[in-house]
Structures are given as structure tokens and as C-alpha cells.
Design a protein around this nucleic acid. Sequence first.
DNA 1: CTTGATACG
DNA 2: CGTAGCAAG
Lengths: 318, 318
Amino acid sequence: MPKRGKKAEDVDSADELEATEPEAKKSKKGAAKGPKEKVVEGPILYQDPPNKLTSPSGQKYTLKVTSWNVDGLRAWVKKKGLEWVREEDPDVLCLQETKCAEKLLPPEMREMPEYPHKYWACAGAKEGYSGVALLCKTEPLSITYGIGEEEHDQEGRVITAEFPSHFLVTAYVPNAGRGLVRLEYRQRWDAAFRAYLRGLDARKPLVLCGDLNVAHAEIDLKNPKGNKKSAGFTPEERQGFGELLTAGFTDTFRHLYPETPHAYTFWTYMMNARAKNVGWRLDYFLVSTRLLGELCDSKIRSQAMGSDHCPITLYMAL
Amino acid sequence: MPKRGKKAEDVDSADELEATEPEAKKSKKGAAKGPKEKVVEGPILYQDPPNKLTSPSGQKYTLKVTSWNVDGLRAWVKKKGLEWVREEDPDVLCLQETKCAEKLLPPEMREMPEYPHKYWACAGAKEGYSGVALLCKTEPLSITYGIGEEEHDQEGRVITAEFPSHFLVTAYVPNAGRGLVRLEYRQRWDAAFRAYLRGLDARKPLVLCGDLNVAHAEIDLKNPKGNKKSAGFTPEERQGFGELLTAGFTDTFRHLYPETPHAYTFWTYMMNARAKNVGWRLDYFLVSTRLLGELCDSKIRSQAMGSDHCPITLYMAL
DNA sequence: CTTGATACG
DNA sequence: CGTAGCAAG
């Protein structure tokens, strides 16, 4: 991800550059054009297609899940995040980066009668860091926190809900950090998390959602060239994601839309990145590959504001 | 000063109490009144009288000084503090609690062609703590920083400007702290500062302004009873102020308005204290007592917003 | 309640 | 750029 104080690694045209670049650009590719024409290159936005509500075999969806990295639950609530959720009305709501101890939850969040079953995981040590939540309309058979490994379960990053037909896992995968200071730890995490998911998958098929903190392929971020050494797009992290797919899981969005570019779920707050759609796809729904017959749609709700990530929604006919 | 999380020590009627108190109050002091009358006890505000621009002997003022604890220069600039200053247009502007390293000064502050002579004192160790400034229209003969004692000169609290007829000292006196953790240090400061001022005063008469972080007498704060153990109103601090007066200096505001109550220069941001005028007089103009013949007026600009303190202005015919 | 510095992203 | 916690007032 882009670093502070550096020259916009992931921004094709920073505001400062726009002023000087155009002449050179036009002289190259606009050679045939008349000198009067003013080239206003608007940002390439992404238009999510209409929701497909049936599975390949024509079954109507029975499960709607929304996942959102809220980047601070309290600020997100103030920015009307909950109103968007009420409109979307998923059966299960998964939140990442809540950054909020349970006792400090906003009352509006505590209430939510639509979701009587609420589960919170918070960072043990550092208050206001990490943290995930899972809210359900119907009660899960069971809930577990973490992935069963001491080293990886101190930061409130994973909640697993067991339902009759499947597991639902929500995760906030550790960021490799500025200067990749935590890349080595991230690789250990990736291996442990993969093993955890394999274990679940051996019992029941699963749905995994959340901020996996990696853009898998070049198509998954605006500026792949400039970010090969940035947290979230290193070869190590990308390969970790690849191994997850190899282990029997499928990236639902990319499965359904294998060639669709400019589909991102995160934009740095810096440099007006969101307005320019200079983003990354870091948030995913992965499913056990044997669930693909039940997959209806995997959506990116780019319009929803309130965080530096946007929400994503999955429809399954389970 | 009032403490966090406690029940408004200095607030006569907290919002929560207002709802329940009136009945009891009315039955006592409103016994003769009809039951229909609704007693709306508005806060007792302070109305600063019109500026007196001449000295007792009838000389027009020649020096106008404004002092303001800005509680963070950068936030204060954003809140249009400078626009108020431009309107007030003093000859010398003294600021306390700038909380800003010189290199981080807002450009608007750097400019200010009205004040070509600008002097900044910042805390050496802790960035964004303490700090005072002195801005002049005419160049002082000399400027010194601190009070000449190592122990007391690490936090950017004093600037002294020498002019032909007088010294001008601006100070941000150390707060005794929550739980009076720094009261002992404060007493050492008071003694050292007093000695410093005595030394100056032996050379030329002086004007001292700034946040002296003490309410001298009961008239100088809303709730004297409840604050005898609060920083800013302990016997130790009050006595320190008394000794300053004994040393040959006069509190100009109180000299001119010996009986005027509800005249404050600070209100905690908490509990809506300013709207209720639950405040303290912590900001002063003291002058060498032999300058009283040249004193025109000492004003409290309670309406000026942008900080938890308001500015004060002195007019002298020097 | 509000400021600013710092950690993290 | 923006959200946290913290220290200080």
C-alpha cells in the first residue's frame, strides 16, 4: 500500500503531475486530433452489474452475507454506516477493523434488533487496534474465536460461525506493514490460517470473507507495477493467496468476473485515490470450491461510504 | 481546575441537575410567586464596559497589548483567531500555549505583515506542549527567552521584550496538574519567576501578561468553595500571586474593577462551562505599580472564540 | 471537551 | 488522510 510522504506510488497521475504531464501525453497519442480538443481523462470507474439472485442451477439465494472493513467502528457509525447496512439488509454482517473494545461499542450497535446474535473479537493488548465482528439474524450452532494458535490469536482477527450446512469465517488478515516490517509474520499467519481453513473444510464447506490484505493479481489493483514491493502486493503475499486457492477455495468475485478490471474494495484516503478509483481489491468472499454450484453472486458495493474500504456482498443458495 | 469524569466540581448546576433542582429552589426563594411563573435562570454573564482610552491624567493611550492563551495555535488559526486579532489590531500580540514548533507554523501566521517582529519560544523536549509567542509592530530593543534558570527554561514559557520605556513579559505559568502532581514545582517556579521580574523591575518598569494559571481571589472564579484543592486555586498558588503583588506589581483589571464579579478568561470545554459562564480569571495584565498613572484600561474580551481562554487587552499611556 | 503527538494503516 | 489511543489541560 502507498506510504506516507512518498510520491504516490499507486497513483497514476498525482495532482501535482497533472499540471505538467498533459502536453507531452497529448502530443503522443493525440497527434491526429485538432489542437482545439481538450482531453479530460475522467477516472475509470467500476460499475457493479445487477445482483444475480439465483445459482447456476436456478435456485434462489438463501443466504446473503455482507463484509466490510469499517476502519474504526465508532467513526463508521457516525458516518451512517449502519444506515447503509439496514438498507442492504444481509442475513449476516461481518465487520473488520472495528478498533473498539466491546464496552465502548456505540449504543446503536448494541441494539440492532435485526441481528440478535452478535459476536465481537478485539485485540487483547493494544486497545483500538484490529478487531472483527459477526452479526447474525439466526443463531449459529457455535462460534469460535481465532484459529487455535496462540501466536495468531492475540489481535481479534478471526470469528468462525458454524451453521448447519457450512462454516462462515470472517477475517482481518495482518497487514505486512510499511517497509514490510511484518511480512515474515504475515507469511507465518498465511500458513497457519490456511491450515485452519483446511481443517474446517474437511468437516463442512466454508465461506470465508473479510479483508485478506492482499491483491491477488495485477488486475486486482490500479498500479501493479509500482507496488511489487508494497504491503499487500508482494510476491510472498500473492503466493499465499494462490495457495489458498490451491487448497480448495475459490475467489467468488474473480470466478464470476474473470476479466473485469478496476474492481476495487480499498482506496487510500490519501491523494484523492477513491475519486480517481486508484484502488486495490483486498476484500474477498472465498468459498470451498465444492460450493460453486450454490454461488449466485459476489458483489462490490463501491458506492457505500464510511470507510477507506467499501462493503462486499455474497449471495448463496445453500 | 475541573477534573475529568468527576461531577462538575466547578459547575453550579450541571445539565443533569437543572432538570430536578428548580422545583426545590422555587419553593424556597420563589414562595411569594404565583405557580404559573416559569423561572428561567439564565447564566450570569459578564459585560466588559467600553474601552477607556485615556490615563487618569487624561493622556491618550500609546500602547495596546493583547494576550491570548490560544490552546493550540494551529487549531486556533483554523478557528479564525487571526481574524479577531486583525480586528482588535493591538501593537503587541502575546500568545500562550501555541503548542507548535516554529517550523510547523501556519503560513498565515508566518506572514502577518502587520507584525514584522515575531518571536517564538517552544518546549524543547515535548513537541506540541506549552510554547509562547510575542508579535510586535515596532522592533523591541532586545528580546530574551526564559527567566535565566535552567530548570525553568525548558518549556517555552516566557519571552521578554525590552522597549525604551518598559519591559514587556509574556508568560505561560506551569499548571499544577491534575491531583496537584506539579504543585511543588509550580511553587519553585513562582519564586524564581518573581525574582526574575523583580530584577527587571529594578531596571525599568514592566508589563507582565499571560496565563498565570491562578485565580487570585474567590471573586476570580465561579466556584471558589469547590476548588480549594484544584490546580489554579490552591492556597499555595494564590499566595504566590499575592507575593507578586507585594513585590511591586498590580493586577490591572482588579485595580480598575475591584468589585466586579463573573469576569473570567477561561472556561473548561467540559460541561458547557462557557455557555454557563462557569469560569476562572487566569489571564492577567500586571504592571509595575509605579506605572498605574499610565494605565488606561484592562479589558476582557469574553466574546472572542477560538480557545478555551478568551483574549485580554491592555491600554497604556506610556 | 479539546489540543497535539504517536501508531497504524 | 484518517482512526485510534494517550497525555495534558
